[in-house]
Structure formats: C-alpha cells, structure tokens
Amino acid sequence: MIVVEGLRKDFRTLTAVHDMSFTVGDGEIFGLLGPNGAGKTTTVRMLAGLISPTAGTATVNGHPLGEKTQQIRAFTGILTESPGLHEKLTARQNLAYYGRLYGMTGARLREAVERYLGVVEMSEHADRRVGGFSKGMRQKVAIARALLHEPEVIYLDEPTSGLDPSAAKTVRDFIATLRALGRSIVVCTHNLDEAERLCDRIGIMRGTLLQVDTPAGLRRHGRTATVRVELNGARGPESFVGRLAELPYVNGVQARENTLVVELTDPPHETPDLVAELVSAGARITSVVEDAQTLEEAYLSLVGEVGERDTDR
C-alpha cells in the first residue's frame, strides 16, 4: 500500500511536484495521467526511493520514504520510461544481472528468468543480444526485468509503449493478474484508452494532482450526471416525467421526443433502480446510455483549466 501526503520536489528554483496526496491500496491499479513535464516521473522516482522529496511524507508498504529507501527498492519493481537495457548482453543475461541486484541467486534466479521470459513471450529470443531487438522486444524484456523479483509495489511508465496490439493486451492482462495477487500498481501513461481499461482509479496531474477518481467518475467531471433512456411504445416519455421526479435520487427529468433525460447523483448505482421503476410503470425501454464525456474530454478539460489558470498568472 502506498500512502502519500503533501509530497513536494524542488529542483533548485523549479518546483516539479507539490502537494501530492493520494493512496494506492493493495490490489489496486492507480493511473497517473498528465502532459509531459507534469511530474509523473518525478513522483514515481520519489516513491521508488530514487530521489528524496523536498517536503511531505510517504510510506510504501509501511516503510517511510527517505529512511529505508534500500528496503523500499528491494520490494519495488519499476519499468522506466526508456527500457534502459544493456545492449551487449542477451535478454537472459540482462534479466540474470538484475535478478542478482535484487539479491536472487542459483535455482531461484534461473527459474525466475525463465518464467518471466515466458510471460513476455521472449523465450525463443532469450540468448540474443538486446542490441538487435526491436523497440517492442526491448519493452518486453524491460517489463520482465521490473517483475522478476516478484515486487509488492510496481511502477510502470508507459508499459505498452512500442508493443503491438496483441503484445499490449498480453501485458495488460498480466498487469491485471498482478492486481489480483494484491500488488499495488502505479501506471504512468499518456494512453487514455489504456488508463481507462486498466486502472481502478486515475489521478490527473500537472505539477500536482488535479483530480483523482475512477475512470467513470472522471468522465462525469464538471458535468451533471445524466442518463438517456430511449423508449419505444404507445406511451410517450412525458407520461413518466412526474413519477420519476418524485424519486429521491432523481435531480431532474426532461422528455425529448422518445427519450427521457434523467439527472442522477450516482448513475452506476442508481440506473438499475431507475430502469426497474420505469419498467414497473409500463415503459418499454430500448436503450439506456449514461450521458458522459470521454476520458479524453475530461482530461483535456482538467488539464486545460490549469493551463488557462497558469496563463492568466
């Protein structure tokens, strides 16, 4: 589990990150989304015990940052922005080297290397020098390197960058299995689709966290949560308006042609009740769609708001 409170990092006169507070639970995938220079890598480097924060506190699996960084690094796996492999060594030699740096030896090391070469589908290229690998192959080896020592906390910077769709899916599925094993995972990405598919919660950041929510919650950001219910039948939508308006969780109702536009507080939880209510009232429903923005729109809206504020200053 990662608990971050008021983390800040200054590089001389530049403040890279400030007032960062969030938690990542065991078995949770937390996404960090933000433009280039937003401070994602700096945040991850601080949490991985690579650089020390200027202010604020954080604990990683109960270990306070800044005091036991070597221990933190021992149970942390990190996929850096660039694969950073040793070109003259083979894939197997690269993994074996890092295994030794994580304190693995003998049969345990050999088994881990074989297992993770298999996980990333690189067994047949294990004895080739990585200098001759494609970008995707390097990324696979780097992923294997990050997971080799079975870390409890994992930081992944653009994990599917350079991978073909099939390999990307394999990696995403594997990350999901790591979640099921109870690992705390932080994913830095520009890929909004991937963030939405993979992450339980997403933090949008630009120097600090602007918003933290589930992907669905972020899509509703800055908008009234509405559900569009399309009807088909003799009774028009206006005939249900009065009944729906009396429901405690409905904040507003409008009838438009053959559609009801219903304002709710929490669509994922309230929509089933709304549908049940309409069906019991005799409505013939053809579709129910949450009227939300895409994650991209939500992201641009949040990042844009800050950008405008920065420009105003």
Partner: peptide, 18 residues
C-alpha cells in the same frame, strides 16, 4: 557514457544496489 546513452543507469539504481 554507454550507460548514459542507453539510459540504463536508472533501472540499476532502482534496485537495492548502492
């Protein structure tokens, strides 16, 4: 310099290696 160019210093320093 080889490590700088290959950006392989960071992954090594992310391990318990001092």
């Amino acid at each position: 310099i080889g490590e700088k160019v290959a950006r392989s210093l960071e992954p090594q320093l992310a391990t318990p290696l001092e």
